[in-house]
Amino acid sequence: MKTRLSLGQQSALLSLALFGVILLIWQLATLPEAHTVAADVDPEYAALMGGGAAKSASSFPTPVEMGATLWEKLSDPFYDNGPNDKGIGIQLAYSIARVLAGFFLAAAVAIPLGFLIGSSRVFYDALDPYVQVLKPISPLAWMPLALYTIKDASMSSIFVIFICSLWPMLINTAHGVANVRKDWLDVSRTLEVNPLRKAFRVILPAAAPTILTGMRISMGIAWLVIVAAEMLVGGTGIGYFVWNEWNNLSITNVLFAILMIGVVGMALDSVFGVLSKRVAYQE
């Protein structure tokens, strides 16, 4: 019997098969095999590493152990047993809150400023050198400055997110606004549309896809940066959680956190995917 599968079904099947293969390799790689390790590794090296090597090898979880951890952590994501023992939900919520705060602050600055730069050659040329110099700076390089001036770890992380979200949104907004088709601007000129109405009814919808692409890039970068920022300043958040679990040598928890970072990143991105579809237009 031959049944035809749709393209969607085919890729779903392939995806599942790939998942199976990954699990299998993972399982094989984490099988207890102390004797082979001893045989392969130089005895001196083994002695040097002592129990450490054995311990880290044994603490890399098998898929089954990982599944158990996943289940356990996700069934109670919001417990709070003091500063070093909070549920994953709480840690993620801290990180997401910081990212959103920094991101929306940046949007509030970048989009109006981008409008200004995009619609005026003078402003564009005046601000371009600053943008060109500030843009390539790693957002984390701002951290000491932020800590020194703001004197608050959490606010400093938000500032770092703000800085890293700013540039893609600013540049894309300016680009989108500057490249609104002249025809549409001419139409609004002949209709004597006032500047505010023109900004919201013509330029904004025309530039929206480009602006949203900028926001999407910004959000992606912000989610990358928050992990590093929280590792640096500590306290709360998913970045801190990863670092803390590394110090506890709990590879299982680190793996679990990595998985969660990926899932949340994907969710944030898909929000912008949906928004992009909403504002897209076909010429």
Partner: peptide
């Protein structure tokens, strides 16, 4: 430009959104 003079553009210039 003025509302007194309506323009029909060569490229129709409709707003696609």
């Amino acid at each position: 430009p003025s509302l007194d003079r309506g323009v029909i553009f060569q490229g129709h210039a409709l707003m696609p959104w």
